[in-house]
Design a protein around this nucleic acid. Sequence first.
DNA 1: TCAGCGATTAACT
DNA 2: GTTAATCGCTGAA
Length: 194
Amino acid sequence: MPKLPVEFYTRPDVECISRELLGMYLFTRIEGEITGGMILETEAYGGTTDRACHSYGGRRTGRTEIMYAPGGVAYVYRCYGIHWLFNVITNGPQIPEAVLIRAIEPMAGLDVMLRRRGKSVAAASLMAGPGNLTRALAIDGRLNGAGLEGPHIWIEDRGVRFLPGQITAGPRVGVDYAGLDALRPWRFRVNVRA
DNA sequence: TCAGCGATTAACT
DNA sequence: GTTAATCGCTGAA
């Protein structure tokens, strides 16, 4: 299956990329174990003019530094002291935009993901939320800055496409502090009902 | 140098 | 519905 090329990520429209990532397949290969699934939910983070974005106003620190890299690398950071969140960096160098991957549908390595989550049966909670997603895929800080063309993490285009009516756009989660930017409908989700 | 906080989750009542 | 867990980043001192 074709991995998405760097050119997919370096395009300038983060909202467009965020939509197009729905239906793509995200995989990780950690310690020889491959896990992954289809992306169901994303959020766009619009760089220096988006108050909800870590790089708002051109903020540049050790954590956000990787956002200024050219598109096509992973941005992994810790949140609430416990969880790892996984983002895809988009756009060109020095343009710090990103797409947060919030949910995937488990596909490959289900048994491995269950073991990592400490569950014995497949449940809806397996992939509920971005923190659980990274735990199931064994994504952590070591993958911060990793290229999205492998070998440890990559995204494949398997030809799945959604019509506009199958995608729900809404306000993003957990960004109430961002003022008017919190209202931007930059959260994209594949409708649960078929 | 350090107090306060956060793109969350799970275990409570 | 409420709250504890838990730690790196941020910004002010």
